[in-house]
Every structure is written in C-alpha cells, then in structure tokens.
C-alpha cells in the first residue's frame, strides 16, 4: 500500500509547458531517467503522468508505442494538446482479439465507487501473456524509446517481466506500465510512482507524481505539474 510522503520531502516543481523548448518535467520524471528500466505508474492520474514522458519522447523525435490490455484508450485530443503526435503512436490491443473497435470484457457497475473496467478474470492470464509478447515484439525492433503498457488489473508473469526488463536494457527503452494499483508488478519494477490530481482551482488541476519506490535514488521525490481541467469541470 502506498503511504503519504513525509512532510520534509523536497518538492520539485516542474516547469510549465510554455516556458521553453527545454522545459518539461523534473529531472526525476524524465524519459532519460527511465530508459532501460521497468517503471510502474499507479494512481488516479496515470495517463497525465505518462503524457509528460510521451511529450518528451516526441519532442526529441523518439518513438512511442502503446500496448493496451484494457478496453479503453487515452482520449486522443487531450494527449495531442500535450504536444504528443498521437497519429504516430502505434496502438496494439492485446485484449481485443483482433477487433480493436469492439470493446471486450468490459464490466461496469452502477455503483460509482466500485466502477472498474476490467478484463474477465478467466481471460486475464491470456491477455497478460499476449500483452507481454506484443511488448517484446515491439521492443525487439529497437524503434521505440517509450513503451507504454496499459495493464489495468492485468498482471504479466514475472518471467515475462524479466524478459521485458532485459530487452529494455538492451534496446534502451523506457517500459512504463499503467496499473490499477495493488498488487504491484513486483520486485523487477525499478521505479513505482503514484500519480494523483488535486483541485480543480480556477479551472486547473494539479498533477502530483510521487515516487513510492526508486531503486536508484531516495524514494518519495515528488513532481508537480499544472494541468487545466477538462471542459465542464471548472
């Protein structure tokens, strides 16, 4: 479980997008820091957190690939406004069974607090295996600097994650997994962060990215980015 960071943790404030071409997230939350590693983003703002990385990758002409194990996708107009070339991101639907336009295994409850969009439990190991294999296939091309695995509740086997980690090292790829939280992907994860929003205040949300685990430095570093709230939420 994630705990609250200690009060004396130094906070790194990320620059705004408009600040200049070299602006972006802090030195902790940068693509360079995550290359060759397996990272995990949990929390309620994980798409915004990964958008920071995708923006950086595309800014420097690096490739981004997206492998989805769930029946949902980033809302492209939102990601495009981060400066990400969404039409240059190949998206692989590992759970869709060959029909990307048809959502599969979606379950929604009328209870707002219990809503989850998950794959069926019995399909989960198959989807996990397909997702990991798709990720491996893409990584072996050596064409992508950032590989996003949108896993939801799907958990690839440790063996698959080990292969992904090794390939990440060989091809210098940042493998970033978006998960629904507990359980974590395991000990192979080099960086695990929690992403959350606070606000809105004056039509703006504050994105907090807090490290829960970082094998290369002291955990609990925090990055803050300001986003505007979607239309209708301000």
């Amino acid at each position: 479980m994630m705990g609250n960071p200690p009060a004396d943790v130094p906070m790194v404030r990320a620059s705004r997008l408009s600040a200049g071409p070299d602006s972006g997230a802090s030195k902790e939350w940068r693509l360079d820091m995550l290359r060759g590693r397996l990272s995990e983003i949990t929390g309620v703002a994980r798409l915004s957190a990964v958008a920071v990385l995708a923006r950086e990758a595309h800014r420097y002409g690096e490739g981004v690939a997206w492998v989805s194990a769930v029946d949902s996708l980033f809302f492209p107009p939102d990601l495009a406004r981060w400066g990400v070339a969404v039409d240059r991101i190949p998206v692989v639907f590992a759970a869709a069974g060959g029909s990307a336009a048809v959502p599969t295994e979606g379950v929604a409850s009328a209870n707002a607090s219990a809503v989850r969009t998950n794959v069926r439990p019995d399909m989960s190991p198959i989807v996990a295996e397909r997702t990991a294999r798709a990720a491996e296939t893409l990584m072996r091309t050596g064409a992508f600097a950032l590989l996003v695995l949108d896993l939801g509740t799907v958990r690839p086997a440790t063996g698959s994650l080990g292969r992904l980690l090794r390939l990440a090292g060989i091809h210098d790829v940042a493998v970033v997994a978006l998960t629904d939280g507990d359980p974590s992907l395991g000990s192979l994860v080099g960086v695990r962060v929690n992403a959350s929003h606070s606000g809105p205040i004056d039509g703006r949300l504050t994105l907090d990215i807090t490290a829960i685990k970082d094998k290369r430095r002291r955990p609990y570093w925090r990055v803050r980015e300001v986003c505007c709230a979607p239309d209708g939420m301000y």
């Binding site: 705004r16 997008l17 408009s18 703002a45 798409l47 915004s48 958008a51 923006r55 029946d71 949902s72 996708l73 980033f74 809302f75 939102d78 990601l79 406004r81 981060w82 400066g83 990307a100 336009a101 048809v102 959502p103 979606g106 969009t117 929003h197 703006r204 949300l205 994105l207 300001v226 986003c227 505007c228 709230a229 979607p230």
Partner: peptide, 12 residues
C-alpha cells in the same frame, strides 16, 4: 496554456 488532464475514453 496548460495541457489538459488526460481523459481515458471507453471504446464503447
């Protein structure tokens, strides 16, 4: 000029 919080859209 802030970018927006990214929404996730269900395919259906």
């Amino acid at each position: 000029h802030e970018p927006p919080a990214v929404r996730r859209i269900l395919l259906k």
